Simulated assay, not measured.
Amino acid sequence: MSAAKTFRIVVGVDGSPESLRALEWAVAEARLRQGQVHVVTAWQHPAMVVGDDDHDWDPTRYEARARRLQDEALRSVHAGPEDITGEVVPGQPAAVLLEASTEADLLVVGSHGYGGFTGLLLGSVSNQVVHHARCPVLVVKPRRQGRL
Rank of each mutant, 00 (worst) to 15 (best):
H132P: 02
M48Y: 08
F7Q: 06
M48E: 10
L107H: 02
L20C: 03
G35N: 05
R21A: 13
A100K: 00
V77I: 13
R8T: 15
N127P: 02
W43D: 00
G123S: 11
H45I: 07
K5W: 11
R144Y: 08
Y114S: 06
L106A: 06
H55K: 09
G91L: 10
V89W: 00
D105G: 11
G80H: 12
T102C: 12
A26S: 13
G35Q: 01
H112K: 12
D14A: 09
G86T: 06
V139M: 04
L23H: 02
Y62V: 07
R134C: 07
I9T: 04
A79W: 05
V130H: 01
E87G: 10
R67Q: 15
V139D: 03
A4C: 11
A28S: 14
R21W: 02
V130R: 04
T118H: 04
S2E: 14
L32R: 14
G146W: 12
R33F: 05
P142D: 07
E24C: 03
Y114Q: 10
V88P: 00
A66Q: 02
H131T: 10
V10S: 06
H45P: 04
D53C: 06
H132V: 09
D105C: 12
W57G: 07
A104R: 00
E72S: 13
A26R: 02
T85M: 08
L74R: 09
G80A: 15
G12A: 13
L32I: 05
V13A: 05
V77F: 08
H132F: 13
G15A: 11
G12E: 00
T60H: 13
H45L: 15
R75T: 14
A42W: 03
P81D: 15
Q34T: 06
A4N: 11
S19L: 06
R33I: 01
H78I: 04
D71Q: 15
L69C: 06
V140W: 01
S124H: 02
V129C: 02
A79V: 08
H131Y: 09
V125D: 03
A47E: 11
P142F: 05
E29Q: 14
T6L: 13
V140G: 02
A26Y: 04
R144F: 08
G113T: 10
Q36H: 15
A64Q: 14
K5C: 11
S124E: 04
V130N: 03
L138S: 07
V49R: 08
H45K: 09
H131L: 13
V96C: 07
H38L: 12
A28I: 03
E99I: 09
V39M: 04
